[in-house]
Amino acid sequence: MNRRSLTSCPSSPNCVSTQAQDEGHAIRPLNFQRSPAEAMEVLKSAIGTLPRTRLVEQDGLYLHYEFTSLLLRFVDDVEFLFDSETKTVHFRSASRVGYGDFGVNRRRMEDIRRLVAGKM
């Protein structure tokens, strides 16, 4: 696996991560069949269709996006880490500020899962 890792979720309920162990934060990773580079392009293309997103870092098999909410302009950080050995994409989606997120981060990641289903 990569030397890089995802940031752990805080104790607050405004974060989901495929690497979290507790039920409140845990979420299933994405899987891919193509090469990591091809899968990454599919994911980037899907995210590109979503409003108010910005790719802030791409480094090897790692992506970091910012998602900005429409009304209050809150920024959420979303990280993706591709594991070429297991053909798995681990990810973390977390609000930068506040405590709760009304399930926004989990819904976003499930929406992305649907967008890339069968394409990666």
Rank of each mutant, 00 (worst) to 15 (best):
L61Q: 14
M109D: 04
R4P: 05
T49H: 02
R73D: 09
E66M: 01
T49I: 03
R114E: 14
E23P: 11
D77Q: 08
E110S: 05
L43E: 07
T86I: 02
T88F: 01
H64Y: 05
E79C: 09
A39E: 06
A39G: 12
S69G: 12
C9D: 00
R52S: 01
N31R: 15
F82I: 02
F102C: 15
L63T: 08
R108F: 06
Y65M: 13
R52C: 04
V116W: 00
D101P: 07
R96E: 00
R54I: 10
S69F: 06
F102A: 15
H90Q: 14
V16R: 00
C9E: 07
A37H: 11
Y65W: 13
R106Q: 14
R108H: 10
T68Q: 12
V75S: 00
A26Y: 13
V56W: 09
R3V: 09
L115V: 01
Y65L: 11
L70E: 13
R107P: 07
F91L: 14
R4L: 13
A39I: 13
T53K: 13
Y99P: 07
L30W: 02
T18A: 09
S69I: 05
L50R: 06
H25Q: 04
F82N: 06
G60S: 11
H25L: 00
V42Q: 07
A94I: 04
R113A: 15
R106W: 08
R28M: 14
D22M: 08
R107V: 12
A94R: 04
M1K: 09
E23I: 11
